[in-house]
Structure formats: C-alpha cells, structure tokens
Design a protein around this nucleic acid. Structure first.
Lengths: 117, 117
DNA sequence: AATATTAATCGTAATATTGCAATGAAGCAA
DNA sequence: TTGCTTCATTGCAATATTACGATTAATATT
C-alpha cells in the first residue's frame, strides 16, 4: 500500500505523546550551534544584546535574525524594541520550565542495571 | 560578494566551539519524537528490545532502524546481535557523559537577574 | 536444501533547514 | 526632508531530514 503522499519528510507527531513532542521541540531548537551560542551569550552578557550577536557570531545578520526568531517562538528569549535596536534576553520563567521537562527526560534511569551485554 | 556556493543548507560548524557543536549534536538527536520514544522505551524495558520498537512505535521498520542507527552513531545506545534479532539498550556510560554536557548548558544562570524589560 | 524471520540498506519522494543577498520598515540624526 | 542605522522579511539555492517500499543479508526453522 502506498503512503498518503502528502506529508513525506515530515515527522509524524500525531503518533507521539505531548511530552515526547515537547521534548523534541526544545531539543530541536538546541540542535544548531548558532542557537546554542546565542543562548550562551545571552546568559553571559545579561544586559540584552542584539546587533552584537552578529559581531560575536560570524553569521550574516538575516541568519542571526532567523535563529532569534525560532528561539523567541519557543518562548526561550524575549525581545524588546528600543529605538532602532532590539534588545534580547533570556525568558527566565520559560527557561526554567523547559529545564524541568528536559531534566525529567535526561534523568531517566534504568531500574535494572543489567545491560543487554 | 557571493557565498561559496558549495555548502549551502549546511550548518557552519567551523565557526563554533567544540562544546557548542557537541551540545547541538546531542540536542539534534533528541529533536525527533521517535528517538525520544525509543530512548524512553529502552529505559522502561531495561532488557533490550528491538523489533518490539516497531510494534510500540507506529513507524515502519526501516524508519525505526534508521533512528536506531543515529542513536547508535552518537553512542547513546548499544546493539547486540542475537540470532536474527538485534537487542538494543542504553549505553549507560555515554548517557552519563552526555548528561553532564547538557546539564552544564541547561543549568546556565544569569549573574545579574535584571532582565532587559 | 527450502522457507521463514529479523533487521539493515538502498532508493526515492516530500518536506525542513540553513544561509545569505536584496529589500523593506521604523526610528534617529543632520 | 534626506540620509543613516538597525533589524525583520522575502526569495532563493543547496543540503538535510523523514518516511517507507523494495530488497538484501544473516540466521533459524522445517
């Protein structure tokens, strides 16, 4: 039987739990070194930076802007317009709730420590 | 000036630190709900499972096999051939070292709690 | 040997991601 | 106003990812 031929190349999120999908969504946004670097820089330079990220990270301005958009979409950062500049910073509350979800996943442990070999 | 026109669509890993690239590689593998589900099942059913994953997760056998391959490539799981079956389980040591790297990233905190707004 | 079972691999289709040049929008400065 | 700065958006090119049917390889079973 043929596949539905409409959603190829797309993750079948409907067959997974909300928790599994949430974990993978957070993980996915961390799945690019530029976004990791952006977040690390925002943690380091607490006071919100923006155009600076383009200087710190050697990627073109539209590329940085796009990564920032994805981080904002997931709620991990906030952006504040200040004149012609936009000042970004970590969204502390959302970062904390994200951590809880990820920790629960990463801290899983096997009840029986016997491996398969 | 034009881009090099050879590596379009590829992450520019060379401009990031090893740590940033490592974090993103681990995150990327968690960036699909099927792999999250596989890992959760391996933690739950300690004794290695394999073809069972195809029944538990509603994806075709080649798809599961492909996801297992990626998890194995990163060293997060081990596969043991037992006759016609292959028995998978969590690679405890590597899982632990992965956790350390991810925890360091997720546990970052701002020195100054003042947000940008 | 012949068949069945299990899982990996190959090939392919469709969508997603990455990156940037060009452009647009909004505020500031002269 | 005219320009300048800063950032977002658009459009596009190239690669990556996801999923599965078909096939292959290896071992069991009969």
């Amino acid at each position: 039987m043929k596949q539905s031929m409409s959603k190829m190349g797309l993750a079948k999120t409907e067959i997974f739990t909300d928790q599994q999908n949430r974990i993978s969504l957070y993980a996915k946004v961390f799945g690019h070194p530029a976004r990791v670097a952006i977040l690390q820089h925002l943690f380091k330079i607490n006071t919100c930076v923006c155009g600076d990220l383009v200087n710190v990270i050697k990627l073109a301005q539209p590329t940085i802007s796009q990564h920032l958009k994805e981080l904002k979409l997931l709620g991990l950062i906030k952006g504040n317009v200040e004149g012609t500049r936009v000042c970004y910073c970590i969204h502390q509350e959302n970062w904390t709730s994200m951590k809880e979800i990820m920790f629960q996943f990463l801290n899983q442990d096997r009840t029986n420590k016997e491996g398969c070999f």
